[in-house]
Simulated assay, not measured.
Amino acid sequence: MVENRPFFDTLTHIILILGVILIAFPIWITFVAATHDLARMSQAPIPIWPGSHFFDNLKLALEGKVVSGVDMLPVWKMMFNSLIMALMIAIGKIIISILSAYAIVYFDFPFRMGFFWMIFITLMLPVEVRILPTFEVVASLGMLNSYLGLTVPLIASATATFMFRQVFLTIPDEMLESARIDGAGPVRFFFDMLLPLSRTNIAALFVILFIYGWNQYMWPLLITTDSSLSTVVVSIKEMLDSAERTPEWNTIMMTALLAMLPPILVIVSMQKLFVKGLTETDK
């Protein structure tokens, strides 16, 4: 029996509405700032309602005129670099992790669990601890100022390997036995049975890893000195510091608004698979 408690229902909705407002308000301010000109954004108080310069600011951002008197990459080029980096990191992490988990669960080889725990222990090492040794390796391999240098050092994921391992452990052994009886080898079993069963988990991980790659700041800042490889997250910070002048908030906020779009599109387009991949337990 479910009790009807109007007071608690109302309180719950009020808390949810307040939470949405707190989360959405900064995004609203970003949008509003992207619709005003520089003169209005230099005045106090800042506006809270949209203006009429949205398309003017959009044109300036797309043409690379975000900061007056400073040559910068067009925003579309920055976003392209970020997109390449995010896709390569997400896809690379998924491929390496799912193959590693498959080997650990379904193949019997010496020190199998030892290798798994070595992978798992890397979760205790933050990026800051290993960033300098990683940089030295990348530099020695000649991958500075390249897409490979931006992505290859970040495509291994202990978290994704652990998640896929747990998913594979939930699959009944009878399924493997039936595949053997039907004459399916390891490769066919992987592609015809494991991949379809892991579809929602792959989608959920892709969303998380894409956003992880898109929001990278420290590694691109360290690994690239060529402005043609600048990512949008790094460039926004550079816009704020450029030439030690007053930030041109209207075009900077337009750039930030455009930078939000790809992660939002990925989340919206894969929302159902994302939620299902994180919540389902039975295969």
Rank of each mutant, 00 (worst) to 15 (best):
H53R: 13
M88I: 12
V129N: 11
W249D: 00
P50W: 14
I17Q: 02
A44Q: 10
G92Q: 07
F7Q: 15
Q271I: 02
L132N: 04
T151D: 08
A160F: 08
N4W: 10
F25P: 05
E280V: 10
D71A: 04
P172C: 06
L144C: 00
F274A: 04
P26E: 06
F120A: 03
I46F: 15
L257G: 02
M253Y: 01
K283A: 09
F80C: 03
L278H: 14
E63S: 13
I171V: 12
L83N: 04
W117P: 01
M218C: 03
S227W: 07
I21K: 12
T281Y: 15
T122I: 09
V167G: 02
E128F: 04
F168G: 00
M124V: 12
G183Y: 10
D37Y: 01
T224W: 00
F164K: 08
W76T: 11
K77Y: 03
D241R: 12
L205D: 03
K65H: 10
L18N: 01
A24N: 11
L83R: 00
G213I: 07
L125A: 15
G183T: 09
P153Y: 01
I46E: 11
F115W: 14
M85Y: 07
A24D: 09
V137M: 10
S42V: 00
K272S: 15
T224C: 06
Y106R: 13
I155S: 07
I202G: 15
L265C: 06
I104T: 09
L18E: 03
P74K: 05
F7P: 11
T255Y: 01
N81G: 14
K237Y: 06
I155L: 10
K59D: 09
S42M: 05
L195A: 03
A158T: 07
D9E: 13
V137D: 04
R199T: 12
